[in-house]
Nucleic acid binder design. Sequence first.
RNA 1: CGGGGCGUAGCGCAGCUUGGUAGCGCGUUUGGUUCGGGACCAAAAGGUCGUGGGUUCAAAUCCCACCGCCCCGACCA
Length: 577
Amino acid sequence: MRLRVQIVMHLSKTFIPTLRETPQDAEIASHRLMLRAGMIRRVSGGIFTFLPLGLRALRQVERIVREEIDRAGAIEVLMPGLQPREIWEQSGRYDLMRDVMFRIHDRQGHDLALGPTHEEVITGLVAHEISSYRQLPCTFYQVQTKYRDEIRPRFGLMRAREFVMKDAYSFDASWDAADGSYQAMYDAYERIFARCGLNVKVVEADSGAMGGQWSHEFMVLADSGEDGLVECNGCTYAANLEKAERARGAPPENSADNGCPSPEKVVTPETTTIEAVSALLDIPAQRLIKTLIYTADIQPVAVLTSGDREINELKLARALGCRELTAADAATVERVTGAPVGYAGPIGLSIPIHADLELRGASDYVCGANQADTHTLHVDIERDVTVTGYADLTNARGGDGCPQCDDGVLQAKRGIEVGHVFKLGTKYSEAFDARYLTAEGEQKPLVMGCYGIGVTRTLQAVIEQHHDANGICWPSSVAPYKVVLLPLNLSHDATRETTERLSAELTAAGWEPLIDDRDERPGVKFKDADLIGYPVRVVISERSLAAGGVEIKARAADKPQTLPLAEAMSQIGEFLS
RNA sequence: CGGGGCGUAGCGCAGCUUGGUAGCGCGUUUGGUUCGGGACCAAAAGGUCGUGGGUUCAAAUCCCACCGCCCCGACCA
């Protein structure tokens, strides 16, 4: 028989320092509320202490994550935060990740890093321990603290330098089998975020520094989100802004003999930006050709877009097939174009010219003349420019056509990235020689996937989506306490007795109530209860007892209801289900 | 790393222009009155004014350097 000690938590015995005033440097609602509700305190930029209330809420999110990831068949491990430099060199990511990693060294001078992620460690483990197809597939995961030297930590736990992440790694015998592991995690993620009460949009994403074949991001839609995304209003297409494609536009008109006059130079003194040119010549930005000079692996190239578009460097790098891509410095621009920065144009350039596909067939446009204080009118791209190739080189935006359906239109939204799944392939297994033996006795590399959830970020995202003017409105699944009891006058015997009876019943039912036993005025208790956002509030007072019982109110409800104690339990259970 | 802003009591701020014994609100402590939506009265504690240097008879205030934080940008899983 197991002894269970059940302690009823009293507010006076824990530590929940709520703030009446709003801390100054908290920018978004969820950050402010976490500080005001006494959940976290800042230690340094992007580094936080979790106070009891924040810790309890974090544990709730972790619990949901573990339940669903376990259910999906993954196995929990715990890997070290401290990692040797060598494994990062082995995967070839040391240079790529060096700016993100906190790098330290031990007393013997060995280089170490605080782990920003764990592909290297897990693949090294698996390379030693997994050797047969009989051991596959398998997925390991952990819930662990990650360290990343963010360029700009902000918004509290949203972008922190130390944060809790759930990361999982799958190993399969084949690319097809790996799709199964990927799908299992994808499904688990949808369940996790649904259980956290989050409205999440899954988008196609770029796999970035992680490498790999494809990936999806789980985005919590919020205006305060740091990531842009687009979704189609006509089909299921949705993508991260970095990755998003757009419809190919109308087929080009035949540009020969279409009546575009011959190019003509026009003087445009001190007009080096699209806005200035557009204003001076009274021509809309979309009829301008923006010419940017990039350096692609040392080689200068010209990139053309219409004046109202932004270059997407990921797309550009892919189209060029280059490894390093940077905007050319002023000296290079002047050398290549023969003009100061701001007057580049595509006519007569002797370097490769890549154009955004929106410019195909562009006729009667304006561009820089490769000559100081001069632009060229009446440019016909087919007639006047030697284009090396057309490709999708710019960001999609709201109003663009959908790349996947006929008349869908893309809508621009903002989101918080709470989860990311990657189909990695064999990049790491080959680097770490993680192979297995097939039934036929053949050596093959393991096919990997990796899957992250920002646990601390998810916690804050819940608050971002669930709050009102008075405070947090916790979904009961992640609430630090589901029920708070407010005995308004503790020196009133009947109030005290009723509170004790109710808390005993709630505790026995597993609801872990919190009793606000502070010697505070009622108003203070009400304000704090709203701020902290317990899903259910029960008021016990002389007035409620005189009215026949206790007063129960769900956080979201406008008005409380008074019920006799006998009926209170079932009503509370109903609110929390 | 570039641009902007801010560092004065636990929190939010004034004082700085024009140098002269450091203030307000909230919170905290004590006593009293209150007690259903952040009460009231009285008393009290609490600050090397971010750090270092300089100017001056005298620096929170003027000058220089550094550190930290916030915002915008570049960049990033």
